[in-house]
Amino acid sequence: MSNGARQDARSRLIRPEVLSGLANLELIARSVVEGVLIGLHRSPFFGFSQEFAEYRPYVEGDDPRFVDWNVYARTDRTYIKRFLGDTNSHLMLLLDASASMGYGSGKLSKFRYAQMLAGCLAWLSSRQHDAVGTLIFDDAVRDYRAPSTRSGQLHAILHALDSAQPARRTDLGAPFRRFREHISRRGMVAVISDFYCDPEEMLQAVRPLAFQGQDVVLMQVLDPAELQPTIASSTLLEDMETGEAVEVSPDFMQREYPERMRAHIEALRNAAVRAGADHIVMNTSAPLDEPLRRYLTFRQKRR
């Protein structure tokens, strides 16, 4: 894709804060995913979606909608047409709904961005006929839906995502243990969180998933103000989870804090590598197509 074409494609994308104004998460997911796919169809991006893979004989239990009726007319046999996207993989979305995710320097909070991102991934995976499940957690599991390709699963997931509210503290340990108890099949696990935790703690929580054979991608959602804060005067910053307040000077926030954030992200990335996971930093000011593209790239590599 040329730069001009890329910019043209981006220009059609809707800004996250505008998307957040849409009340329906399903509508948001559909808008984003369709936009991304339109861009992909124009690009030399191979191996996705409706690309033909093989024919196999129809067996009982297969969905009759996938019978290739042209082949049946010519050969009088029923074959199922299979595509590259139809990998029978499943995607598990782990959404952090702790209070810290409610932070947003603008109209869009990290949690809303994460909701939209999870919705888009669910929509995209559903379109791929992947089984999709969700686990919404804070310091405990708030909602769990096992991966499934059943009709209505997508709407149930979107509803669960939409109705979640950020609250309480973050604890990766307990929810991840619970998740490991329920999951048995290999698949993809996308953890959407701001990851304000000790990287080692994160490592301890994620590593067992990798040992299970899960492909884990850590999507770290951060607000622009968290990456490059701007305060004009001495400010008392209050932790949204613990209530602890710390007075900071503008000088500290402009010089030292970005360095600390960079080091924290780097530590998370190293921990992710050690756990065999991928780590993606997502800026809530960036359009959602970027994380989707990165997700697809990640999925592509997995295949």
Partner: peptide, 9 residues
């Protein structure tokens, strides 16, 4: 001073 929320301290 002005009290602002932050994700984590």
């Amino acid at each position: 001073p002005e009290r602002l929320p932050i994700s984590s301290v």
